[in-house]
């Protein structure tokens, strides 16, 4: 595990966060993960302001009708290889909002999802754990692509 992580740590991980109609509970926990108590930035996890710079997409919310096209566009704008993390129960399965007339989600109906983080909202530790998993997956994807 250690050896694997050291190899994976050759590059810091840039994360873009998309709110596809979430209640903001997950969003504040994502921010909490970056602030001093949890401090994900010490691992090189950095929140960026545009999907074009990102390796990982953190998607929250059950995807409302208005956000469907925007979410697809953001996914396309993110360079390969990329990993998508669905954060929160409503993004994973629709949660309490299932059956609503204004939902097209959950997220994996709109864009492919690699990692699911259930919880309403998930704890910051769970979000950091998901990002570490994304890291390992990203390494594998890079390996398959023939990159060093």
């Amino acid at each position: 595990m250690c050896a694997k992580l050291t190899k994976a740590l050759d590059k810091s991980l840039w994360v873009f966060h998309v709110n596809s109609g979430s209640c903001n509970g997950c969003d504040i926990e994502i921010l909490a993960a970056l602030t001093p108590r949890y401090d994900a930035e010490r691992f090189g996890v950095h929140l960026v302001g545009t999907p074009r710079h990102a390796d990982v997409l953190l998607v929250t919310g059950p995807v409302t009708r208005d956000m469907e096209e925007k979410l697809k566009r953001i996914y396309e704008m993110t360079p390969d290889p990329k990993v998508v993390i669905a954060v929160g129960t409503c993004g994973v399965s629709g949660g309490v909002f299932h059956e609503s007339y204004n939902l097209v989600g959950p997220i994996d109906r709109v864009i492919p999802v690699d990692i699911y983080v259930p919880g309403c909202p998930p704890r910051p530790e769970a979000i950091i754990d998901a990002v570490v998993k994304a890291w390992l997956k990203l390494e594998r994807l890079r390996g398959e692509g023939g990159e060093q």
Binding site: T64, R65, S93, E99, S100, Y101, N102
Partner: peptide
Amino acid sequence: LPEDWPEGKYPWRRDETFPEDMLNKL
């Protein structure tokens, strides 16, 4: 509601104008 919402469909009414087919029956 989104700008392309179908005309004549009203989600808070309990009659035939409710967009039954737009429900996301997960």
